[in-house]
């Protein structure tokens, strides 16, 4: 079923990262198998001699998916704003996945620099997709700063640990019912994507779980099915858990004892 992100109608709730694939062809096939309509890209500082776009990027550009450039590697609002401005020109899109890292070991976002950068960029006409923690108040501040979408982490980037704090994610969904929420980072297996979608998240963004699979193309398909299953389950309404058994077959007493 179609949904909207940043005023754009989309079918796929699977946002795919494009880094770290074994070959350009496998990346291209993985994007197709995922059915992804949004893929993330990055910027690299050139060597002194300059350079030309590699095969990987050219295939991504030609995949037909909408590009979501990131500000990976930034440590301050100022750096992130400059990189975002470059990305807007280079990729010809106002969309930016805003990453401002505060800790090298966990790659945890710096909420203070993030909010500052988000405010500057939103005012400048960017559609900011902030990569953030699952802290509710930080998320509210990002919305105040002009973000219309939030991308809280499930676990540290590339860790594959799944959703470490489902309670916090559930809280975000409950408190921000009308904001598009995308779990970004930490997804390891399709099980984690199902869980994110069952929590009512609007989409999932992942990269390593597909790129580092033995067969990335098949894993992309597995995630596609998981994301669809989780979404359908959320829309259908998952039954309440009970502490004790509740017989599903309607019988009266015991079948052979009157």
């Amino acid at each position: 079923m179609a949904f909207r992100i940043a005023d754009v109608a989309m079918e796929s709730r699977f946002f795919l990262g494009t880094a770290g694939y074994p070959s350009p062809q496998i990346l291209q096939q993985a994007i197709a198998a995922a059915g992804a309509q949004v893929v993330t890209v990055g910027l690299k500082r050139q060597m002194a001699a300059g350079g030309v776009p590699g095969d990987f990027y050219r295939l991504v550009r030609d995949s037909g998916a909408r590009l979501l450039p990131n500000t990976a590697g930034c440590r301050s609002a100022r750096e992130a704003v400059t990189l975002a401005q470059m990305a807007r020109e280079l990729f010809d899109t106002p969309w930016i996945k805003l990453e401002v890292i505060g800790d090298d070991y966990t790659l945890q976002p710096d909420p203070f620099e993030l909010v500052e950068a988000a405010r500057t960029l939103a005012r400048d006409g960017f559609e900011v997709f902030p990569y953030c923690t699952d802290d509710l108040v930080t998320c509210q501040r990002l919305l105040d700063a002009g973000c219309r979408i939030l991308m809280p982490w499930g676990a540290p980037i590339g860790s594959g640990q799944g959703l470490l704090n489902p309670h916090a994610l559930r809280t975000l969904r409950a408190r921000l019912p009308d904001v598009p929420l995308i779990v970004d980072a930490g997804i390891g297996s399709p099980r984690d994507a199902v869980q994110a979608m069952e929590l009512g998240f609007d989409a999932v963004l992942l990269n390593s779980a597909v790129a580092h699979a033995r067969d990335p193309v098949q894993m992309a398909r597995a995630f596609k099915l998981g994301i669809e299953a989780g979404r359908l389950a959320w829309e259908a309404g998952i039954m309440a858990q009970q502490d004790m058994a509740v017989a599903s077959t309607p019988v009266t007493g015991r079948p052979f004892i009157l």
Binding site: G42, R45, E89
Partner: peptide, 24 residues
Amino acid sequence: RDGRGGVQLRDGDAVFTFQPITGG
């Protein structure tokens, strides 16, 4: 891009150039 022609480089300027790549 359209402002590059108006920037004259001065002693000590640090120029950085970036190109597109894949990313997460």
